[in-house]
Nucleic acid binder design. Structure first.
Lengths: 214, 214
DNA sequence: AATCTTGTTGAGCAGATGATCTATAATTAT
DNA sequence: ATAATTATAGATCATCTGCTCAACAAGATT
């Protein structure tokens, strides 16, 4: 395009001679950039633009990922992986700790993990696309986090103020919506997200008649 | 493709002779289907598929919308339009009615308007794409609904339990998340969304020390 | 230094996609 | 009935996009 009269040196556009990386390293590099790229422009972003960002030929991508779908699948897995730490179910049901403290700990950690542009947007893009991994994740979240949370609350709630699964989803959704506002709609973040989360939790617990030390 | 040996009759694929609609009618027909189409497959859906759904040639679309972007812009406007009724600001601030009743009325009506697949998905797609209309809508929502709502709550709240704008967003987000679960993630809807909404509102009000009759 | 291995490039294909243009035929006006 | 108008179809263009393949060259091996 820019008619760059190059010698036969193996230079890339930005002048650096940096070809031939070890395969695993290159694969990771591609995957990292792909996550950023697709999170930004959507899963329909084209491979040529991605390659340009990497300073690499488009054809090279297909040496590491047979098809674009394979690449996107890898992006999904990389993004989804480890987002739901396996020890949370135990920690959330550890009744030696007050429920409020458990909830605060969980949502502070969880929000730190998911309130990131890459995660938020890829999650939303994949959700809109009906990706299987998205459904699996949400089912998993419901099974190992939210349902146990309901049980924990039920155990402590005032009899007349028993929560429902919908109440849990409402607590969860209200918190997640902070990230949606920030990363999907690109609105300015709250001054103090953790405080907003704490207040949401306190509203929820208060309504079930559960005190901070219960 | 299917080697249909047709006479020179003006028949469309499904056998009906139904060409030549009045321009305004055709335009509406295209726009209606475009809303459904793009809501389903995303804004990158191609015009040939859309035309096929309409039982019409792809080139015809460009007689009514100069470019695909124009069509999408029209889709945006059609979907966004009238979603925020102009009388809500007044009704939400009508202090002759208890705040709880005002909130219930608003969110029951509002959720009926927005918990629709077309709206939810187009809103999300346009949000991810950074559409200007999306930002305008959210700003408008904040200005004419949520901020007044904060003021109304502040006027009634117990001094020590004053809500913040974040609390309002949390209330709002928790409710909107019901629609997100249903239409973006395609999870089953709550048995009774209005009840879930009512409980969210009650949690919010209770935490501000506002009774049902205030 | 010569040879081999293989990561990388550059050219290019096939199909998809937005958009254009002309011929056709449905409808209206005469 | 005939002519004028114009909504629509069909063919086609230019570009984009996922993907392939042969040739090249960086780094390892001898």
């Amino acid at each position: 395009m820019d008619g760059q009269t190059e010698t036969s040196r193996a230079e890339t556009e930005d002048g650096g001679t940096r070809r031939r990386l070890p395969p695993e390293e290159r694969r990771q590099q591609i995957l990292d950039e792909a996550v950023r790229f697709f999170a930004e422009v959507g899963l329909d972003g084209n491979t040529r633009d991605l390659a340009r960002r990497l300073g690499v030929t488009q054809s090279l991508l297909f040496k590491y990922f047979a098809t674009k779908d394979d690449l996107i699948e890898a992006v999904y897995e990389r993004v989804y992986l480890g987002r739901l730490s396996p020890d949370w179910p135990d920690r959330l049901t550890d009744r030696s700790v007050p429920l409020r403290a458990r909830l605060l700990a969980f949502y502070n950690e969880y929000s730190a993990l998911i309130f990131q542009r890459e995660w938020m947007r890829i999650f939303m893009f994949s959700g809109l696309a009906g990706a299987a991994l998205n459904h699996r994740y949400l089912k998993h979240l419901g099974d190992v986090i939210l349902r146990p949370l309901l049980a924990e609350t039920e155990a402590l709630a005032t009899p007349g103020a028993q929560p429902t699964m919908e109440d849990i989803w409402n607590l969860h959704g209200g918190i997640v919506y902070i990230g949606i506002r920030q990363h999907i709609y690109r609105m300015p973040p709250p001054d103090d997200p953790d405080e907003a989360i704490a207040r949401a939790i306190d509203r929820y617990l208060a309504f079930c008649g559960i005190g901070p030390e219960d």
